[in-house]
């Protein structure tokens, strides 16, 4: 598997209702009810006058299969990967995000400041 690569994302913090109503084709990770991470540069306008929408360079991404993601979490985490959707937690002592596609693909997102640790700790 390849090492994670720094990417840029779009971060949207808005009221949960505004995020629920947001339509986008982008790869999306709902980190919390009021927090959405979109992979790539995405032009979105949530219906919330106080929404924060900004470019987010804080992530590195690695593509893998869902099976590889499950194996990685089995070896380096103490939780299990859901069949689809987002999972967040500690992997080899690093805070990571996983997005599992029902088709069998997975994205692993690591905070960019931990990229070197991820390369060292996650084979």
């Amino acid at each position: 598997m390849s090492a994670p690569e720094p990417i840029f994302c779009t971060r949207v913090v808005a009221s949960p209702a505004a995020l629920d109503a947001l339509a986008t084709d982008a790869v999306a990770l709902r980190l919390a009810p009021d927090d959405l991470l979109l992979v790539g540069a995405v032009d979105v306008r949530p219906d919330d006058p106080d929404a924060i929408v900004c470019r987010d360079d804080g992530w590195a991404l690695r593509r893998m299969t869902a099976a590889e993601a499950s194996a990685l979490v089995a070896d380096h985490g103490d939780w299990s990967v859901p069949p689809a959707g987002i999972a967040q937690g500690a992997l080899a002592g690093l805070p990571v995000k996983l997005l599992i596609d029902p088709a069998g693909d997975a994205l692993l997102l690591v905070p960019r400041p931990y990229l070197a640790d991820a390369v060292e700790r996650l084979p």
């Binding site: 103490d78 939780w79 999972a87 967040q88 937690g89 500690a90």
Partner: peptide, 11 residues
């Protein structure tokens, strides 16, 4: 409530 069951060491 957002992420599911995790070790207390994550908190």
């Amino acid at each position: 409530p957002v992420c599911g069951a995790r070790s207390s060491t994550e908190f």
